[in-house]
Design a protein around this nucleic acid. Structure first.
Length: 432
DNA sequence: CATGCCGGGAA
DNA sequence: TTCCCGGCATG
């Protein structure tokens, strides 16, 4: 803890950065920002508020709204989902993290790790690697199990990374640890690993329809049947559909980013909340990807249950932004609570209550002054989003209550002050 | 405005 | 290192 104070400044920065990244959109800008930051960073915590606001406004680089959805679409989605999964499994390097496809795939990603693609730099704390690569907790890659939650989270958070962190985290608090590690990465920003993280999707350009599908065929079919009113059963196409959809490239990173930001870090404890976001991770292969697109909206608002399901892998559910805002709180991980549950798919609505509890409690624990008022949903995400932030707030010295030399002895007796006080440093004599 | 201190900088 | 101080944050 003490050292935290010392490094609190760093943490501060980190927080700011991470905060700034909470939005998907920003995720895109992330790298840029990061780069910029490396040169000149924004030390000012005050910016947080701005960032926060900004973040709210932002998001939705891609909308995936679609009111309607036919059964057919559903099927299609299934297919799509399958494809997506396939692709994911194929390129573990990029996807595995965020998606954490499944344990089954664990092998693949594991290999990855072993491959040492991202061997952490020797730099101790600052290892310029992605934490997600898991050097840290995956140190025992051999055992994917524990990680389950941890893993999932990791990948996600990676992107959010932003700062440099004080490496040391209380041994007792792994979450912090992880976080720090990841945060340090700075140097090897996301790009490195994710270069291939682009995912191609097809978005329907039809007015008021933002449907996004992962396959051209799918989108064409969608257009044909939904918009052109053609008989769906026939695959026949005159190619006209081509005019109504566009190919879009999604940066899975960004998505992950957004998610990551949400998902706090406690690896060990993803618990319920994550479900909403990470569920995909926790829920192995079967999570339905496709649906997500359509479901997307619902989740946003609230159905935790729904959320957990749809949100899963929604790689392109970018506007999960809002979603997570709401859910994020849940994700607060720190609490150990039901982390275990993450593994299972079951997040019944009933649990929702438990959720909130779990996530809330943590904050409560720490927040000295942070108000964990239920209504201030917006805050939570923020706080939660980055543990370091927590730590920051926690560690942040808020003017020692106790009187310090200056006050005790007064300016006139300055010579009686402890040296620290004389030097305008933290008082050593009357420590709080 | 008074305090407490961080981040820098000069000696 | 030691000693100071600008300047920010907080109350």
């Amino acid at each position: 803890m003490l050292y935290m104070a010392e490094q609190h400044e760093e943490v501060k920065e980190k927080c700011v950065q991470s905060l700034s990244k909470n939005s998907n959109k920003e995720a895109l800008e992330d790298q840029r920002a990061v780069d910029g930051k490396r040169v000149g960073r924004d030390p000012d915590p005050r910016s947080v508020s701005l960032l926060e606001q900004k973040r709210k406004v932002v998001s939705s680089s891609i909308d995936v709204p679609h009111p309607r959805r036919s059964e057919e679409e559903v099927d299609m989605d299934k297919v799509t989902a399958a494809m997506v999964l396939t692709s994911l499994s194929t390129s573990p390097l990029v996807r595995s993290p965020p998606v954490k496809v499944s344990e089954s795939l664990s092998g693949s990603w594991k290999d990855n790790g072993s491959a040492g693609l991202f061997t952490p730099s020797s730099n101790s704390s600052s290892g310029g690697y992605w934490s997600w690569s898991a050097p840290s907790d995956q140190s025992n890659p051999s055992t994917p199990s524990p990680p389950l939650s941890a893993d999932s989270f990791k990948p996600f958070r990676v992107p959010s990374v932003g700062g440099v962190g004080p490496g040391p985290a209380g041994p007792d608090d792994p979450s912090l640890d992880e976080q720090d590690g990841s945060s340090l990465l700075f140097d090897e920003p996301i790009p490195r690993k994710r270069k291939n993280s682009m995912k191609v999707m097809f978005k329907c350009l039809w007015k008021n329809c933002g449907k996004v599908l992962s396959t051209a065929a799918g989108i064409q079919r969608h257009i044909r049947t939904i918009h052109l009113g053609r008989n769906c059963d026939s695959d026949w196409s005159d190619g006209e559909e081509d005019f109504y959809y566009t190919e879009i490239k999604l940066n899975t990173d960004s998505v992950a980013d957004g998610l990551s930001s949400l998902s706090p870090m406690s690896p060990s404890v993803l618990s319920p909340p994550p479900p909403s976001l990470l569920p995909s991770a926790s829920q192995p292969s079967d999570s339905h990807r496709p649906p997500q697109s359509s479901d997307s909206k619902e989740p946003l608002v609230g159905g935790t249950t729904q959320l957990s399901r749809s949100a899963p892998s929604a790689l392109y559910l970018i506007h999960t932004d809002h979603a997570y805002q709401a859910t994020a709180p849940v994700s607060i991980p720190s609490s150990s609570s039901n982390s275990a549950s993450s593994a299972s798919t079951s997040f019944t609505p009933t649990n929702s209550s438990s959720f909130s509890i779990s996530w809330q409690s943590p904050p409560v624990t720490f927040t000295g002054n942070t108000h964990q008022t239920p209504h201030s949903v917006t805050y939570k995400p923020v706080l939660v989003s980055n543990i370091s932030c927590f730590s920051y707030f926690l560690s942040r010295k808020v003017r020692g209550e106790g009187k310090k030399c200056r006050k005790v002895y007064g300016m006139e007796n300055r010579d009686m002050w402890c040296t620290a006080c004389r030097w305008k440093k933290a008082c050593q004599r009357f420590t709080d």
